[in-house]
Simulated assay, not measured.
Amino acid sequence: MATVVLTLLGTDRAGLVSAVSQLITERGGSWERSQMAHLAGTFAGIVEIDVPSAQVDALVSGVEALGSQGLRVSVERSGEAPPASTEGHRMSLHLVGADRPGIVAEVSALLARHGVNLEELSTQVVEAPMAGGTLFEADAVAVVPDSADTTALRSALEALANELMVDLDLHEGS
Rank of each mutant, 00 (worst) to 15 (best):
M1P: 06
T3L: 14
V5L: 05
L6A: 07
L6I: 04
L6M: 02
T7Y: 10
T7D: 09
G10C: 06
T11Q: 06
D12Y: 03
A14Q: 13
G15R: 15
V17H: 02
S18R: 12
A19I: 14
S21L: 00
Q22D: 13
L23W: 00
E26A: 12
G28H: 09
R33Q: 09
R33S: 08
Q35W: 06
Q35G: 00
H38R: 06
A40H: 10
G41P: 03
G41S: 08
T42G: 05
T42L: 02
I46M: 03
I46K: 03
V47L: 10
E48L: 01
I49N: 05
V51H: 09
S53C: 06
S53D: 11
A54W: 07
A54G: 09
D57V: 14
A58Q: 04
L59T: 05
L59S: 01
L59K: 00
L59E: 02
G62Y: 04
V63R: 02
V63Q: 02
V63L: 07
A65C: 06
G67Y: 02
S68R: 11
S68I: 03
Q69I: 15
L71K: 03
R72I: 00
V73Y: 12
S74E: 15
V75E: 11
E76N: 11
R77G: 11
G79L: 04
E80D: 10
A81W: 07
P82M: 14
A84Y: 13
A84Q: 15
T86Q: 14
G88Y: 04
R90F: 12
L93A: 01
L95F: 10
V96H: 11
G97Y: 04
A98M: 13
A98F: 06
P101E: 13
I103S: 05
A105G: 12
A109H: 11
L110I: 07
L110C: 10
L110W: 01
L110F: 09
L111E: 14
L111R: 08
L111V: 00
R113A: 14
G115Q: 14
V116P: 05
E119H: 13
S122N: 10
S122L: 12
T123E: 00
T123I: 06
T123L: 01
V125S: 03
V126F: 02
E127Y: 01
E127V: 07
E127W: 00
A128R: 00
A128G: 03
P129T: 15
P129D: 04
M130R: 11
M130L: 11
A131P: 06
A131I: 02
F136E: 05
A138C: 10
A142C: 13
V143A: 12
V144W: 05
V144P: 05
P145G: 03
D146W: 08
D146S: 00
D146H: 07
D146V: 04
A148W: 01
A148C: 09
D149S: 06
D149G: 12
D149C: 12
T150C: 06
T150V: 09
T150P: 01
A152F: 07
A156F: 09
A159D: 13
N162W: 13
E163T: 15
L164C: 09
M165Y: 09
H171A: 15
E172N: 12
G173P: 01
G173R: 15
